[in-house]
Each structure stands twice: as structure tokens, then as C-alpha cells.
Amino acid sequence: MIKLNDRISFDLFGNTAGISLVGASGMGKTTLLTYILLVASKIGAQILIIDVKRADLASLSEVLKNGEKVVAATADEACRLLRVSNNNLNRRFEKHHSSFGKNWKDYHLRPVIIVCDETSALMAEAGKNKAELIRLLRQIVLRGRQGGMFTILGSQRLEANVVDRSLTLQLGTRIVMGHADNDTYRMAYPTLGDMKLLPFVSNKPGHGLILSDSLTVDNQTLISETPQPFIAPNMAQVDVPYVLNELQKRADLGKFIDEPYWEY
């Protein structure tokens, strides 16, 4: 469970293929992404990062195990990372398919999180790689929930000309940070209908709205079409590289089965 505050949390590994996270520059997208990665690292998840801005998340290559392989800072590197990830997912399905209805948890597979910090920047830089990037993302998003591979797409806007809507609609947790225009809200929350029903959110870093198919509010599972307001944890005093390194050391990877076919 990703605990956003004392009242609101969501299951990163619930009935969702991942997260779409949008908001204007400076509204705290990368900070929230970092927090989610730290929580996931605590339970031993494999972290994969795409950050073509070559900013904070890209710098974690110095901390993550096999950092040069699991962090991509260019479109070419992102293609390679997604290509390998898709191949790994294929091998998982080939190896673990003996029982109808089972998923990655039943086989004790290690969960994988793929984070793209600025998807629109990635696609703008992609050039000839754009078609392959979208094809690989689609395959991973559509099959990842069952195979234990979850995608987080961050961007100032996730418009259809950046990533196909049929793909982003598969991401069952949708977060908008700070204030946004109505088009952004409609893309994030297409079932809401009347934008006047949106709760008020301060246009300050860390403030946002979340809608998820695995949302818990006040310890109760909430099934609603109305996003919930939240304030993300304050990470200002957290030494992220140090904490991430310690979490990796302490994570109990022995609870996951060995996957010798895995590439990273």
C-alpha cells in the first residue's frame, strides 16, 4: 500500500496496470514518484527508471544495483530497457503458466516498476524510436498486471499525441498534481462527466487529486468516480540516495523465486 497521508492510500500492486501522474512543472510529480519508489523498494521491488531530462531520477543509477542497465537517460537507452523488460515479461509467462487464473503473486515473482518521469519529453526526443517505444509500452501495460510489471507514466500532460489513450486508460490509478485545465482533468478522469464535481485543490507543490481502482480512504475501500484530494508526503529532509541504498540492502529478496532467465 502506498500511504499518501493518514487518510488516503492505494495499492500499487492492486487491480491496475500502473499510474498516470500529471501536473505542471514544480507541482511535485518527481517528488511523489520518488516516494513511491522508496516504498516499493522497501518490499524488494525491481526499479527501472526512464528519465530523459537527466535529472534527479536519472542520478539514481549510481545507487541502484546494475544502475547502468536499469536507468535510461536517452531515447535509445529507453528503447533498450523496454525491449529487455518486454522480453523478461515474455519469459515469465512462458515459465509460469501452469495454473489457470494465477498471477505473479501466486508464483512469488518479484514485482517490477517501470517509471518514466517525463513521458512527453521522452516521446519528443524519440524520433525514429517513437513507434517502437509506444509498441513496447503498450505490450507491457496491457500484460503487466498479471505478470507483476507495473508502469508509472509521469508528464505535464498525457495527450493522445504523446501516448495513445487506449494505453493510458489501462492505468487504473490517475493522479493530477496542483491545478490543471479542464482538458487535462477530462483526460485523467473521463468518467467524471461534470468537472464542477472536482474537489478543490490548492495550487501548491504536493497537493493533488487521486482516483484509483484500489483506493482506501479512512481504512475503507472506496469505489467512486470522484477523485480524492490529498497532500503528498514531504520529502524535503530525506536523503533519497542514502535511503534507497539502505532499503535495497535490507529488502528480503529471498521471498521471491529465482529467475535465472531474467536480464538486468
Rank of each mutant, 00 (worst) to 15 (best):
L142R: 15
L167G: 02
D164G: 06
E159I: 04
Q146F: 09
L167R: 00
I152M: 08
F150W: 09
R145I: 01
G144L: 03
G144F: 00
G147N: 08
R143G: 08
G154D: 03
V141T: 12
R165G: 02
Q146P: 04
I152K: 09
G148R: 06
G147H: 13
L158V: 02
Q156D: 05
L167V: 15
T168M: 11
F150C: 04
R157I: 01
Q139I: 14
L158H: 05
L171Y: 01
Q156P: 06
R157F: 14
F150G: 04
Q170A: 10
S155E: 11
Q156G: 07
L167E: 07
V141C: 12
Q139L: 14
N161F: 11
D164S: 15
D164Q: 11
D164E: 14
T168P: 01
L153M: 09
G148T: 01
T168R: 10
G144H: 03
V162N: 00
L142H: 13
L169P: 00
T151C: 12
G148Q: 01
N161L: 00
E159R: 15
S155L: 04
L171R: 00
E159K: 15
G154A: 10
L142I: 08
R143D: 06
R143E: 09
G147C: 04
L158A: 06
F150M: 02
Q156I: 03
E159C: 08
G147A: 15
E159W: 08
I140C: 06
R157M: 15
Q156M: 07
L169C: 07
L158T: 04
M149V: 12
G148M: 02
S155T: 14
S155Q: 02
V163H: 03
R165S: 10
